[in-house]
Nucleic acid binder design. Structure first.
Ligand SMILES: [Mn+2]
Ligand SMILES: [Mn+2]
Ligand SMILES: [Zn+2]
Ligand SMILES: [Zn+2]
Lengths: 126, 126
DNA sequence: TTATTAATGCAACTTAGTTGCAAAAATAGA
DNA sequence: TCTATTTTTGCAACTAAGTTGCATTAATAA
């Protein structure tokens, strides 16, 4: 597959990410777009957007895929390295504006680090 | 279900954990014990051992369950807070002997933190 | 021994995600 | 334009991890 085309489906997903500050789960996206496109298409476009550095992927507390917009990433340079927070009550999931430092481990080469915090969000604390 | 009984199945799992310094995936355990007990039993015993503070659970890079022996935890006090490492080449997964500090996030209550490092282990570096 | 409780096996189910392939849509070339 | 080629999409079937309900077995207590 050579040249990539900017299709309607792709734009639908882009729009959703542009309009949301929170992270979105693949499950949720499949559900929300269910009338517009097939779930296979959703997964394929998500993968493509990750490759292009538009969004980044991580695993939520149940082990399923979550996605959020990248700030300053490109296809060749995924620089986002921050922890994520997921609310145990409402499920809201956010990118945290903290720099995550990669611990050094002797005799190991570390490629990537992922940190997930679980707790209660602002709304659910009350 | 009231009083818990120490059965053969339970002891089989305990033995495996005592003999291994690495973390073990549920998948692997189900496979290894496949002739001795049903996978449902494996999952149930793993859950029980977590409740009792004998082992702790975390998600590997593919989002599946991993387990490792606890050092100083009890049923009421899971104190283990350390990152985990998973080798992208051979899959070997280890508890890291580092204290993980929970970042404070304003207006959020953090209950737990999980950190997963992915890279190459000692053996796969060469 | 008999009653009670806990552990196990098994089959069926659930759910997130993947795959293969055919159809549709977009683009390029003549 | 008409046609060939490439890319995207839909669909159905599949995979794999984990769960559930329920009947059976094993252990313990009365
Ligand atoms: Mn993020
Ligand atoms: Mn550990
Ligand atoms: Zn919440
Ligand atoms: Zn390795």
């Amino acid at each position: 597959m050579g040249i990539k085309r900017k299709t309607k489906s792709l734009n639908s997903l882009l729009e959703i990410f542009e309009q949301s500050d929170e992270a979105l789960s693949a499950i949720d996206l499949v559900e929300r777009l269910n009338s517009k496109m097939n779930k296979t298409t959703v997964y394929r476009i998500l993968e493509r957007l990750v490759d292009e550095g538009v969004i980044h992927a991580f695993k939520g507390k149940e082990g399923v895929q979550w996605y959020a917009r990248c700030k300053d990433c490109t296809a060749s340079n995924h620089t986002d390295l921050h922890p994520h927070f997921q609310c145990r009550d409402c499920g809201k999931t956010e990118c945290l504006d903290l720099q995550l430092s990669m611990p050094k481990v002797s005799n190991h080469r570390i490629d990537s680090a992922e940190m997930l915090l679980v707790g209660q969000c602002e709304d659910c604390l009350a």
